[in-house]
């Protein structure tokens, strides 16, 4: 009695495994084009980059010499330009980050009111975000041009104030870059916060109002806690983007005046492609990679933990 079903199931298993094998073949074939490109252009370059960073790789292909961790020793030990470019990067992050978050949140809060024409405002504030960095650079080089050739200075002088050398002054250059950055990309944060605000249940507010909560109490105890996820998301993205800042500064000041706005990636770029020290450049790149990778891991851990709440 038990023999026949067994024979059938054996046969079934045999047939299934043939189908399974076929299925596996199809599955692998489908991911293969992606996987090949991914390995060549995303994965292997990290390992190669680390390998190159252990060399003096001065001119492409010729004069390659293994030096162990010497590049890293120089980088951390006595490279003043590395530390100053790191400082500039942090300075940028400290100026632009809070500016982007506070302005983004303020815009989102205002847009979340039931007022007419919200769509138009949302479009206006988001639009700069899609412009390329070079267009933004060309526009803001004129908006903040020195003397009376710039829009802001022309307005200042028309009300009797002295023109300000925005990008040409060491003290003003980075804050002016940060202002440009806020104009360019605050719309993105605004959209994220707006989405978060719309997820907060109106009943929470109604209940708090019955309990006699004022505007500030509502914001402090309902809105802000409700925005925990979007806030974290925005902060992490901001941090990652700030560490990578380069194109905007490159088109606005080129790192000047006198190298006072040169960020980390610009330094990496100059070492690699102006001085052709690819080993040294790769060491800087690898340090950045380790740092950014760690931030991402922490973010991942944080968000997966948040999921369980």
């Amino acid at each position: 009695m038990s023999v026949r079903p067994k024979a059938v199931s054996k046969d079934a298993i045999f047939r299934l495994s043939r189908i399974e094998r076929q299925e596996a073949l199809v599955g692998v074939a489908f991911i293969l084009p992606f996987l090949i490109l991914y390995v060549i252009f995303n994965f292997l370059p990290i390992l190669q980059g680390f390998w190159i960073s252990l060399h003096n790789w001065d001119v492409i292909g010729t004069n390659v010499r293994f030096v162990g961790f010497r590049n890293y020793e120089i980088l951390f030990g006595k490279d003043k330009l590395f530390w100053s470019s790191l400082e500039h990067t942090l300075f940028f992050a400290l100026l632009a980050g809070p500016g982007l978050i506070v302005t983004g949140l303020a815009l989102a809060l205002m847009l979340n009111q039931r007022v007419r024409g919200i769509g138009i405002f949302r479009t206006i504030f988001y639009m700069p975000n899609i412009l390329s960095v070079t267009v933004v650079g060309l526009v803001f080089a004129r908006v903040f041009a020195p003397g009376e050739r710039g829009f802001v200075n022309a307005v200042l002088s028309s009300i009797g104030l002295e023109p300000i050398p925005w990008f040409l002054d060491e003290a003003n250059a980075m804050p002016t870059i940060a202002i440009t950055k806020v104009w360019w990309s605050v719309g993105f944060n605004m959209l994220i916060f707006l989405a978060g605000l719309q997820e907060i249940s109106q009943s929470l507010y109604d209940a708090a109002k019955v309990d006699g909560g004022g505007r500030w109490t509502l914001f402090r105890h309902i809105t802000l806690p409700g925005l925990r996820r979007p806030m974290l998301f925005v902060i992490v993205l901001q941090l990652i983007a700030s560490v990578q800042v380069f194109p905007l500064i490159d088109v606005l000041t080129g790192g000047g005046p006198a190298g006072s706005t040169r960020p980390l990636v610009m330094y990496l770029f100059e070492r690699s492609f102006d001085y052709w020290q690819l080993g040294y450049g790769s060491a800087i790149a690898f340090v950045m990679f380790v740092f950014l990778f760690s931030i991402s891991i922490i973010q991942l851990w944080f968000f997966s933990r948040g999921e369980g709440d």
Partner: peptide, 15 residues
């Protein structure tokens, strides 16, 4: 790959 920034890969890809 989600966590790999472009700056970490562009020198080897250039080579």
């Amino acid at each position: 790959g989600l966590m790999v920034p472009g700056q970490a890969t562009f020198i080897p890809v250039y080579l």
